[in-house]
Structure formats: structure tokens, C-alpha cells
Simulated scan of single mutants.
Amino acid sequence: MRVLLAEDHAILARTIATGLRRQSMAVDIAASGDEAERMCLLAAYDVLILDRDLPVMTGDEVCLRLRELRDPPPILMLTAAGSLEDRVYGLDRLGADDYLGKPFDFTELVARVRALSRRAPKPPSVVHEYQGISLDLTRHEVHVDGRAVELTPKEFAVLLMLIEARGEAVTHRELVRSIWDENLDPRTSAVRATVSRLRGKLGVPDAIVADAGEGYRLCR
């Protein structure tokens, strides 16, 4: 099961994520509302645990925007505002699938996450394949010559763009515009570092070639 936890309190987020991982769940963390929305657009999550009080974009806004998607993830609203009126508002007006107030018992959180995952319809897998690399967009899984490879959301997104280019170069500007924040300093090494880590995880040193003046292309 793949879970996205949108929680800006770093210690709480790490605690929840660690507990869920011990329950055999794959967990990604978003520290702001806009990051949570971007990650949901890049990957298919079985459940989104969404704090209402997030920076940049509130959990309420994220919930409303995700409900416009064709296949939004089931949303468990997690918040300190646990009155009856707040619960009704979250479920009825915002479209959340479940609502859990803070503080909460961790075993109840796990039970609610699993229940949401069971109720959610399972869409057919969308798989991209190229030169022995298989990328399952629905399950957020990657296999290289049959070997499972664990990627971060950004590494996954970069690999998807390279596979879709079918050996043609993808420019640095295209990667930044599609995957990173538009305000990213163009001089930063973030893209180069991500590509370097991705190259290492693919297990072939020259799997991704950097063409001077062109960008990056997949050529295993």
C-alpha cells in the first residue's frame, strides 16, 4: 500500500511515517499543501493522509482541488479541529472520505487507512516500457530487467519523462518546468543530482547520457 502523508510538523510526520512503514506501508511525506498536490499528480497513492493546517495551500484547498481529478486518492483528513461541525464540514463540504481528530490512537489511524484502501476502486495499471525498464504509473513501481527499483517521487518523474521521450533529449528547462518549482534557481545542481542518483539506481553507469547543450536522454 502506498500512502502520502501531508503533515508540516516534521517530528509528527516522521513518527507517523515510521509507524506506517512498520505496518508494511510505503510512505511519502509532503510538508506543504502545494507539494502534496504535486505529488498526487505525479504518483498514484492508495490513501492520502491530509492535515488541514498546511502552509502555502491549506488541506481544505488540497482536498477540493484533488476532488476535481478523475481518480483522486481516498483522503483521510487529520486535524486538531475535531468538533462535530468540523467533521461534517470535512466530509460533506470538502469531500474527504474519512476524518480523524488529533490527538489520536495510532492503531485507529492504521485501521482507517487500511479501510480506505480496501474501499477504493483499483484502476488498471498504466505501464511505460523502454529498453528493459518498466514503469508502472498506477502502482508507482519501477523494474529494470525484472529487478525492482525504489525511486523517490522526483526520480520517478524524471524517469517517466525520459521514457516518454523514447531516446530523445529532455532539456534541463523541461525537467525544471515539469517537476520542480518554477522559482527554482536555474544554477542549482538539483536536477543534475537527481539524474545522478537515478543513474545509480538503474544500475547502468551510462543509462542516462547528458548531452551538452541538449539535456538528458535515456540510452541503455
Rank of each mutant, 00 (worst) to 15 (best):
A26L: 15
I29V: 15
L41Y: 10
A36P: 00
A43W: 01
D28V: 12
C40S: 11
A30F: 02
I49M: 13
I16F: 04
I11N: 03
E35V: 13
M39N: 02
R38C: 07
M39F: 05
A44I: 00
R21G: 11
E35F: 00
E35C: 02
E37F: 14
A30L: 07
A30S: 05
D28I: 11
D46N: 15
M25A: 14
D46Y: 10
E35D: 08
A26T: 15
G33T: 12
D8R: 03
Q23G: 12
A43N: 12
G19H: 09
A31K: 06
E35Q: 10
S24L: 13
C40V: 15
E7F: 11
E7S: 06
L48S: 05
C40T: 15
G19L: 14
G33Y: 09
V47I: 10
A44Y: 05
D34I: 12
A30C: 01
E37C: 04
A30P: 00
A36W: 06
E37Q: 11
S24D: 15
I29T: 09
S32K: 04
I49R: 07
D34A: 05
A17D: 05
T18I: 03
I16M: 09
L42M: 10
I16W: 06
L50R: 06
L42E: 06
L50N: 04
I29W: 02
G33P: 04
L20T: 06
A43P: 00
V47P: 14
A36E: 03
A26P: 02
T18K: 12
A26K: 14
T15A: 11
V47R: 07
R38M: 08
E35W: 00
A31V: 10
S32I: 08
S24Y: 14
T15C: 07
T15Q: 05
A44R: 15
I29E: 01
T15S: 13
A31W: 06
L50A: 11
T18Y: 08
I29Y: 01
L50P: 00
I16N: 07
S32H: 02
A13M: 03
L48P: 05
E35L: 03
R38W: 07
T18S: 10
A43G: 00
I49L: 15
D34V: 13
